Simulated scan of single mutants.
Amino acid sequence: MAAGNYTTLSEFILAGLTYKPELQLPLFLVFLGIYTVTVVGNLGMVILIGLSSNLHTPMYYFLSSLSFIDLCHSTVITPKMLVNFVTEKNIISYPECMTQLYFFLIFVISECHMLAVMAYDCFVAICNPLLYNVTMSYQVYSWLIVMVYMMGFIGATAHTVCMLRVVISKVKIINHYFCDLFPLLELSCSSTYINEVTVLCFSAFNIVVPALTILGSYVFIIVSILKIRSVEGRSKAFSTCSSHITAVSIFFGSAAFMYLQLSSVSSTDQGKVSSVFYTIIVPMLNPLIYSLRNKDVKVALNKILGEKTQTPLF
């Protein structure tokens, strides 16, 4: 590649979700509302679990960690996106872009593994209830949470280091609303073979392995539930897992569509829509899904806010 065909860039321009000016303000208001709900919901969940002694169990510690991840995950992406809706040029500096990419990857990878850990927790609670306190001891669930974040840091570091070696062409417009792997690789005028192999390997590990863990856990859970004779018992067991199944389906479905592709340059516009779900929508939905469908969370919230049992909030 000739020297004149590439340069060291100090900034990029984010294309955003749409090129239509008339949609900028409506989208700003929509995503501002979504982000507000995300912050209030996830921060509220973390505080509620921290203040409620009856929620100090492994299941709710995992849920608290998931809420923290969702809060950080959304905060890495949405504020910059909101600013871009109301500015004429959506500029992001190269260091800021790489920083956004790094922290985005940390939290998106951590969320994959946290959902898998939560599925395993459901498996132990339903299939081996008598051994739950032994299997999910303080040391075990603490190490599981630490391992989740370690997976995030390792994956994010590998991807970001590989991205730093890429030579960017003069075309500095990122066809996305944040700095993601595939849109950045599209700007490369050097070989991206190592990057694509890294993306495929790590994406397969961080999506397929957690997905198989979740699938395997739920196979055993369903078998155990079907053995329960009482209808009430089955209903209670299913309700325990239904919130998690809903969150998993939305998150892994959209993430797999975006990252399990053979080419880094395919379906970028479709990827924008898909990534909206796991970067913005899922972090907003998770606290709503887990709180509105969880009796213990409702009771704890009513207790914290001083509501009488005769006039519950939910």
Rank of each mutant, 00 (worst) to 15 (best):
H113T: 04
A3C: 09
P79K: 03
S274M: 07
E88Y: 11
N302L: 01
P210T: 05
V273D: 10
Y193G: 06
K295A: 08
F238S: 02
L285A: 09
S93N: 13
M59W: 09
P210Y: 07
H159W: 15
A158D: 08
E88R: 12
S137P: 06
V86A: 08
S235M: 14
C179S: 12
Y177D: 02
T57M: 03
I225H: 03
I304K: 12
F123N: 07
F252Y: 05
S64L: 07
K172M: 01
V299A: 05
A237K: 08
T75G: 06
Y94C: 11
D70C: 05
C72I: 12
N206T: 09
Q100S: 09
V117S: 13
Q310S: 10
F62C: 04
T160Y: 07
N195W: 13
N5S: 06
A204L: 14
I289K: 03
H159C: 15
G253E: 10
S142F: 00
F277T: 04
G50Y: 11
T75D: 06
T160C: 11
C97F: 00
E11M: 02
F107M: 07
M59G: 08
L51P: 00
C189D: 08
G306H: 04
A156Q: 04
S267L: 14
M163C: 15
A247G: 00
V166W: 13
V265W: 11
S267V: 13
M98Q: 07
N90M: 13
N206E: 14
I222H: 02
L187H: 01
E111V: 03
C122I: 00
L71G: 07
A300M: 05
L25A: 14
F257S: 14
F314P: 00
T75K: 09
L105M: 08
Y132I: 01
P283Q: 08
F205I: 10
K89E: 12
F314Q: 00
K272Y: 07
S65R: 03
L9S: 07
Y259M: 11
K80V: 09
L288W: 14
I304D: 08
V197A: 07
T246G: 11
L27N: 15
I91F: 01
Y193K: 04
V39P: 03
S53K: 12
S263C: 02
K295Q: 14
L105V: 07
C72T: 10
V30I: 15
E232W: 08
V299C: 02
L29M: 07
S93R: 13
I221E: 02
Y290P: 01
K227N: 06
E96R: 12
S169D: 03
V197M: 10
L181P: 10
S239F: 12
P58C: 07
M98W: 05
M81H: 11
L29K: 11
V297T: 02
L51Q: 01
L292C: 15
A211C: 15
Y35W: 04
N294I: 10
D70Q: 00
G50D: 10
